[in-house]
């Protein structure tokens, strides 16, 4: 199953832009580090955090790009794997009970099911499976285990984790198949399909991630007043505003080629993504601070875990998805 290449052109263009941007960043940090190393007179180029971050970006852009090229099924598999790692990170950093080991096992099993609904394009099931069926079944399994101490805390924790890492992230995968709805396309039939969904997903991911980056950079440059100093002292008003300006511009620029929106609708969506992404980001910071850890994992050197990178997307994905679903599909 592969996309129809003619409609894939805007997606390619965005990836060429990303690769150019990353190459520039790689070369710049290389020269900065070489100068620094020369200054320290030992001449050794030290791999610093920025360089590790950029290398991880290469990995992420590569994996995401290839999965989009290979078509909807590959993208669905990719997000199922990301959900699995994210849920594992979540369960590994929050308090869980010995008695709930089997419950957590069932919680993991929701991932293949949820992504099966995505792959079959069964919207009705996709949208209620975690909020209703998992919500009702897991407590049932918990009472069978019989431990009542911290019952509510444990049940809430498990359900929050499923909503955050399985439900919201599966919206990203559903974006790819959403425009195919009603076209009666069988994903495994080897047909070439329109890349509209891939373009929508790319639009959301690029906007959310570059919003994070621009918030970080403008926070470093103009950051002054922290917005939530207790949760994350690095998130400043200057960062938020700088990120919003950049994301509004980019959202408006990419809207006509990647989505059915026009330029001003794209600008509004860019503004929304910027704000909501910020909330997702500090919400994850609050979870980490509560758990007493700095990073959710080590899978992406320089960034931390998958959840450190996907934190903003867990909030932007469902909102963008439902906006598109309501307005266009």
């Amino acid at each position: 199953m592969i996309f129809d290449f003619a409609t894939m052109l805007p997606v390619f263009q965005v990836f060429i832009g990303l690769i150019a941007f990353l190459s520039l960043a790689t070369v710049t940090t290389y020269f900065i580090n070489r100068r620094k190393a020369a200054g320290e007179s030992n001449g050794v180029i030290i791999k610093n955090e920025l360089q590790m971050r950029i290398n991880s970006w290469w990995l992420m852009v590569g994996v995401f790009g290839l999965s989009l090229m290979f078509g909807p099924m590959t993208t669905i598999y990719l997000f199922a794997i990301l959900s699995f790692i994210a849920l594992k990170e979540y369960f590994s950093m929050t308090a869980t009970r010995k008695a709930d080991r089997r419950v957590l096992f069932w919680a993991y099993l929701t991932i293949p099911l949820q992504y099966y609904w995505v792959a079959t394009g069964w919207y009705g099931m996709f949208i209620i499976f975690i909020p209703i069926y998992a919500f009702l079944f897991l407590p049932f399994r918990m009472v069978l285990a019989g431990e009542t101490k911290n019952y509510l805390k444990a049940a809430s924790n498990i359900h929050w984790g499923l909503m955050l890492t399985v439900f919201t992230l599966s919206h990203l995968a559903f974006l790819v198949v959403m425009p195919l709805q009603g076209a009666e396309v069988n994903l495994s039939a080897g047909l070439k399909v329109s890349s509209e969904g891939a373009a929508l997903l790319l639009y959301l991911v690029v906007l959310t991630q570059l919003n994070d980056v621009s918030q970080f950079i403008s926070g470093k440059l103009f950051g002054n007043t922290p917005i939530a100093p207790k949760v994350s002292p690095n998130k400043t008003r200057g960062g938020l505003i700088g990120g919003a300006i950049f994301t509004v511009a980019l959202g408006s620029l990419l809207a006509t080629s990647l989505t059915p929106m026009n330029w001003w609708q794209g600008a509004l969506v860019g503004f929304g993504i910027s704000l909501v992404g910020f909330i997702g980001d500090i919400s994850m910071s609050a979870i980490k601070r509560d758990a007493g850890i700095k990073d959710t994992g080590q899978i992406l050197p320089g960034h931390g875990g998958i959840l450190d990178r996907l934190d903003s997307l867990t909030f932007t994905a469902p909102l963008f998805f439902h906006l598109m679903h309501y307005a266009f599909y």
């Binding site: 590994s92 957590l104 993991y108």
Partner: peptide
């Protein structure tokens, strides 16, 4: 005493 494997980091 429990053969079921539940993933954690």
């Amino acid at each position: 005493g429990d053969p079921v494997l539940v993933p954690f980091f």
